[in-house]
Write a protein that binds this DNA or RNA. Structure first.
Length: 271
DNA sequence: CCACGCTCCTGCGCGC
DNA sequence: TGCGCGCAGGAGCGTG
C-alpha cells in the first residue's frame, strides 16, 4: 500500500515527464473504484494541459487549466507512465493519454479513486478537512500537543488520524514511534510538549528518509517513471515481531491497536 | 464532537 | 500438492 513516501515518489516520477503535456484522451476500462470514475472524465480532461502535479496527504493532484484530477492510490494502486499502446493488464483501470504516452492507473484492490474536480483541489470535500502536512512547518511540537489534549486514544491511533496530521499510515506510525522512543500504547493526551516535539520530528525524519530511499518496498508498487521496485527498506519494528530489536536486541512485540497491527520494542519505547 | 466498527477488494501465506 | 480461510491495508462513513 502506498504510504506517503510512495505517493511522493510517484509524484516526482510523473512531474518532469508529463508537465506541460496535453491530454489527448482518456480510457476508462473499469470505473468501479472507491468512488466511480465519471463518464464525463474524458470530455472534461481531453485537450487540457497538465500544469503541475501536486500532493496533499496521500492524494495526488493533477492540475489543469482550470480543474484538476484527484487521485488516491488506496492500498494497491500505482500510476505509471507507459507507452500509450502498451496492452493493459487486468487491473489497469484508467489511462490518461498524452499523445504517445499514457499515465496508467493500476489498482488490483480498487480502494483508490480518480475524480475530476472543477476549480481548487484543496476545496474538494475529500481534502477540505485535512490536518497539516507532516513535512511542512505547521506540524510541530505546539500543534501536536494541542491536537492531542482532548482525546483518549493511544498515540499510535492519534498519529493515524488525518485531522491531527496527514500521511502517517500504519507502517510509519510504528516506525516513527520507535524513533521517538514512545510506546504506541501511551494515551496521546499524557504526552508533554517535549515528547510531542520529539515525536513530530521523528515523524518528519521517518517519512523524509523513506522518500529519500524512493519509497519503501511494495509488492505491487511501481514508481511513476515505470522503474520497478525499490530496495527493501530496513524497518526498525514493522513486521518484525519475534525478532530482535536493531538497537537493544530485545524482542519486538506486536499487538492490535484500533484494528491495526502495531509493532514496538518494549525496552526502547517507554510509556 | 468523539470513538469505534464496518466496508470496499484482491492477493498472498499459512495451516490442514 | 491443493484448497480455503484469514489477514493486510486507507480512510470514509454510519452509529452510538
Amino acid at each position: 500500500m502506498p504510504e506517503l513516501p510512495e505517493v511522493e515518489t510517484t509524484r516526482r516520477g510523473i512531474l518532469p515527464v508529463l508537465t506541460g503535456q496535453v491530454v489527448t484522451g482518456c480510457r476508462v476500462r473499469n470505473p468501479r473504484l472507491r468512488l466511480p470514475v465519471s463518464d464525463l472524465m474524458e470530455s472534461r480532461v481531453t485537450g487540457r494541459t497538465l500544469l503541475d502535479v501536486r500532493r496533499r496527504a496521500k492524494y495526488l493532484l493533477l492540475i489543469f487549466d482550470p480543474g484538476c484530477i484527484v487521485v488516491h492510490l488506496g492500498m494497491s494502486g500505482s500510476l505509471r507512465v507507459v507507452p500509450a499502446e502498451l496492452p493493459p493488464g487486468p487491473h489497469d483501470h484508467v489511462d490518461l493519454v498524452f499523445g504517445a504516452s499514457a499515465l496508467r492507473l493500476r489498482d488490483p484492490r480498487r480502494f483508490g479513486l480518480m475524480v475530476w474536480h472543477d476549480g481548487d483541489p484543496l476545496a474538494h470535500p475529500l481534502l477540505r478537512h485535512l490536518g497539516p502536512e507532516p513535512l511542512e512547518a505547521g506540524f510541530d511540537a505546539g500543534w501536536l500537543y494541542r491536537a492531542t489534549r482532548a482525546t483518549q486514544v493511544p498515540i499510535k491511533q492519534a498519529l493515524m488520524d488525518a485531522r491531527r496530521v496527514v500521511g502517517v499510515g500504519n507502517i510509519y506510525a510504528s516506525e516513527s514511534l520507535f524513533r521517538a522512543r514512545i510506546s504506541p500504547l501511551v494515551s496521546a493526551r499524557t504526552l508533554g510538549r517535549v515528547r510531542c516535539g520529539r515525536l513530530a520530528g521523528c515523524v518528519r525524519e521517518t517519512l523524509q528518509d523513506a522518500i529519500l530511499a524512493g519509497g519503501s518496498t511494495l509488492r505491487d508498487f511501481v514508481g511513476g517513471d515505470g522503474r520497478p521496485g525499490y530496495f527493501q527498506q530496513q524497518y526498525f519494528v514493522y513486521g518484525r515481531d519475534g525478532q530482535s530489536c536493531r538497537v537493544c536486541g530485545k524482542t519486538i512485540v506486536k499487538a492490535i491497536i484500533a484494528q491495526r497491527a502495531t509493532f514496538w520494542c518494549p525496552h526502547c519505547q517507554r510509556r
